[in-house]
Amino acid sequence: MWHIWQSEWRITIRQRSSYTFVILWLSVLSLLFLLERNTPTITGYTNMIGTMANLVLYIIPLFMLIISSFSVANEMENGQWRLLSTYPVSSVAYVMGKAFGQFTAQLIIFTLSYGISLIIGLISGSALSIKWVLALYVFSIVLMLFFLIIGFVIGSFVVTRWQALTISVGMWFFLIMIWPTALIAVLSLVPYPMIAVLLKIALFINPAELLRIVFVVQLGGGAIFGQAYDTLITFLQSGAAWGVLILYTLLYMILGFVLSAWKLERRKMQ
């Protein structure tokens, strides 16, 4: 697993597309920070912070799904997976190595871009609080991890990069773009007393929605979610919430790795 990890992140860092992502993140983040150069210091949840979080929420999942699904699908398509299958490497080790290697590479790329953008924003006169800067960074990194795992699951189930692209975009469109609309449509069919319970269950199905709510709550904007989320908001403001979130992340990772390894093992036997 360690060799796959090192190989994955080194190959990714050396690719020319990585520099494209550095420029992309640098451009987007710099523009976001420059928007605040003539406003007071950001200390809580404002409309501008909501706009920044939404932009990150739209961009990161799409890119991570495509990158991670392509990482596996490309090896399926060019025959490299068949060659790897002849070596004494388990499917779990392969998936974990690929996932953590890709996450390491994307973490380096995003951190570099984030740091440079932050410096540009501070030099230009933007007033940013440390809490807000750290909250946006952690939100982006954890979001990146979740959707990289989903992308690797997609890549394990497809055969070509075209299939990976189609399913990745479809998954992004469902989880990010039309999730609220789909949720409202489904909840309109159930009895009213069950709506609050189903809302909380649906929240843990979609990691992007969960992370968005945690981000908003930590910046003091939990009141915007309404009465149905009152109990959940109170819990997320407590110290025990971090333990639950860490457990949720670990379970999500384990489930993703198990699904990917199971499918790859079935392909070995075919």
Rank of each mutant, 00 (worst) to 15 (best):
Q270K: 10
L35D: 10
I254F: 12
A53Q: 14
M177I: 15
M48H: 07
S85Y: 07
I42S: 12
F257I: 11
F103R: 00
I149N: 00
F103W: 05
L62R: 02
K131Y: 02
L148D: 02
T39K: 13
Y248K: 00
G170F: 04
V28G: 08
F257R: 05
L35P: 03
F146V: 05
V186W: 12
L264E: 00
W2A: 07
I11S: 14
A261H: 02
S238I: 02
L203N: 12
S68F: 09
I120Q: 06
I150C: 09
K131P: 05
G155N: 07
Y137F: 13
Q102L: 15
I66Q: 03
V72E: 13
H3C: 07
L250S: 05
L26A: 06
R212P: 02
L83Y: 12
P191Y: 07
S113I: 03
Y252V: 01
Y87Q: 13
A261V: 00
V186E: 12
L199P: 01
P191N: 09
K98G: 11
V258F: 04
V190E: 01
R37L: 08
G121H: 02
T166R: 11
Q106H: 05
N78V: 08
L255S: 12
V138Y: 07
M96D: 01
F147R: 03
G115C: 01
G155C: 06
T46K: 00
I205C: 03
T12E: 15
L84Y: 04
I130A: 09
G151P: 06
I195E: 13
M48E: 15
F103N: 00
Q237M: 13
W25F: 14
V138S: 12
L211S: 06
T160D: 03
A196M: 03
Q218N: 13
S68N: 05
W162H: 14
L31S: 14
S69N: 04
L232D: 08
T231E: 15
E77N: 02
T43Q: 14
F21N: 09
A99L: 14
V92L: 12
R161L: 11
T160L: 08
V244Y: 05
A73V: 04
Q163T: 06
I116N: 03
I141T: 02
W81M: 14
T12P: 05
S168E: 12
R14E: 07
L219Q: 09
L134K: 04
S68Y: 08
F139N: 01
G222V: 07
G239I: 13
I184K: 15
I213C: 10
L118C: 08
R267K: 13
I11D: 12
V186A: 10
T160M: 05
F215E: 00
I66D: 09
G170N: 02
G115D: 00
Q102Y: 11
S168W: 12
V92T: 11
R161H: 08
L128D: 00
A93M: 09
S238K: 11
I60R: 07
V217E: 05
G243E: 00
I130F: 12
W5K: 06
T231A: 15
I119S: 01
T166S: 15
Q237N: 15
I108T: 14
N206W: 10
M194L: 14
F174G: 09
M194V: 11
A202C: 10
G79E: 09
R161T: 15
A182C: 09
L251F: 04
W179R: 04
V56F: 10
I59W: 03
